[in-house]
Simulated assay, not measured.
Amino acid sequence: MKPVLIVYYSRSGVTAKVAAALAQACGADLERIQDVRPRTGVTGYLRSAWQALRRQPADIAAPEHRPADYLFVILGTPVWAGRMSAPMRSYIRQQREHFRRIGLFCTMGGSGGADVLTAMAELCNKLPVASMSLRQRDVLSDAYMPTLAGFADELAVVRDSEAAAKA
Results as ranks from 00 to 15, higher is better:
residue 44 G to E: 05
residue 1 M to Q: 13
residue 154 E to D: 06
residue 136 Q to W: 05
residue 151 F to V: 04
residue 119 A to L: 00
residue 116 V to P: 03
residue 14 V to P: 07
residue 93 R to T: 11
residue 39 R to I: 07
residue 30 L to E: 08
residue 152 A to L: 00
residue 56 Q to F: 07
residue 159 R to Q: 07
residue 26 C to F: 00
residue 84 M to C: 11
residue 61 A to F: 02
residue 76 G to R: 03
residue 52 A to T: 05
residue 58 A to P: 10
residue 68 A to C: 09
residue 145 M to W: 10
residue 12 S to D: 03
residue 77 T to V: 10
residue 82 G to C: 02
residue 35 D to A: 12
residue 11 R to K: 14
residue 158 V to E: 03
residue 73 V to W: 02
residue 157 V to Q: 08
residue 24 Q to N: 13
residue 152 A to C: 13
residue 135 R to S: 15
residue 41 G to C: 10
residue 133 S to F: 12
residue 25 A to I: 02
residue 51 Q to A: 15
residue 133 S to G: 14
residue 94 Q to D: 14
residue 141 S to C: 13
residue 165 A to H: 03
residue 136 Q to V: 09
residue 138 D to G: 11
residue 65 H to K: 03
residue 124 C to M: 11
residue 165 A to L: 05
residue 161 S to W: 07
residue 76 G to Q: 05
residue 33 I to L: 06
residue 28 A to E: 02
residue 161 S to C: 01
residue 41 G to Q: 10
residue 107 T to G: 01
residue 52 A to F: 01
residue 41 G to W: 03
residue 61 A to H: 11
residue 118 T to K: 13
residue 56 Q to S: 14
residue 165 A to I: 00
residue 15 T to C: 11
residue 26 C to N: 04
residue 144 Y to I: 12
residue 130 A to I: 10
residue 4 V to R: 06
residue 12 S to G: 06
residue 49 A to G: 15
residue 101 R to K: 12
residue 31 E to F: 09
residue 87 P to E: 10
residue 165 A to T: 01
residue 119 A to I: 02
residue 23 A to G: 07
residue 85 S to Q: 02
residue 22 L to I: 00
residue 141 S to M: 13
residue 159 R to S: 07
residue 105 F to R: 07
residue 98 H to W: 11
residue 132 M to A: 15
residue 81 A to K: 07
residue 27 G to C: 05
residue 11 R to T: 08
residue 33 I to R: 01
residue 68 A to I: 04
residue 13 G to W: 01
residue 105 F to Q: 06
residue 66 R to V: 08
residue 80 W to N: 08
residue 89 R to C: 11
residue 103 G to Y: 00
residue 121 A to D: 03
residue 30 L to K: 03
residue 91 Y to S: 10
residue 144 Y to C: 13
residue 98 H to L: 15
residue 80 W to L: 12
residue 10 S to L: 07
residue 45 Y to Q: 13
residue 167 A to Q: 12
residue 74 I to D: 04
residue 5 L to T: 04
residue 111 S to M: 01
residue 129 V to H: 09
residue 41 G to T: 12
residue 128 P to N: 09
residue 70 Y to E: 06
residue 42 V to Q: 06
residue 43 T to A: 14
residue 6 I to P: 04
residue 154 E to Y: 00
residue 162 E to V: 02
residue 25 A to D: 07
residue 78 P to F: 10
residue 12 S to I: 03
residue 135 R to Q: 15
residue 117 L to W: 06
residue 71 L to W: 04
residue 146 P to G: 11
residue 62 A to S: 14
residue 105 F to Y: 11
residue 116 V to G: 08
residue 9 Y to G: 06
residue 44 G to Q: 05
residue 127 L to F: 11
residue 158 V to T: 08
residue 21 A to H: 00
residue 59 D to P: 00
residue 126 K to Q: 14
residue 62 A to Y: 13
residue 96 R to F: 01
residue 140 L to D: 13
residue 72 F to N: 07
residue 78 P to Y: 14
residue 104 L to G: 08
residue 122 E to H: 14
residue 151 F to C: 01
residue 127 L to H: 13
residue 140 L to S: 15
residue 8 Y to T: 02
residue 138 D to T: 12
residue 86 A to K: 00
residue 103 G to K: 05
residue 33 I to C: 08
residue 60 I to Q: 00
residue 83 R to H: 13
residue 124 C to N: 09
residue 166 K to Y: 04
residue 154 E to K: 08
residue 83 R to G: 09
residue 12 S to F: 05
residue 53 L to V: 10
residue 151 F to G: 02
residue 138 D to H: 15
residue 46 L to V: 09
residue 146 P to F: 11
residue 148 L to W: 02
residue 78 P to V: 09
residue 69 D to I: 04
residue 80 W to K: 08
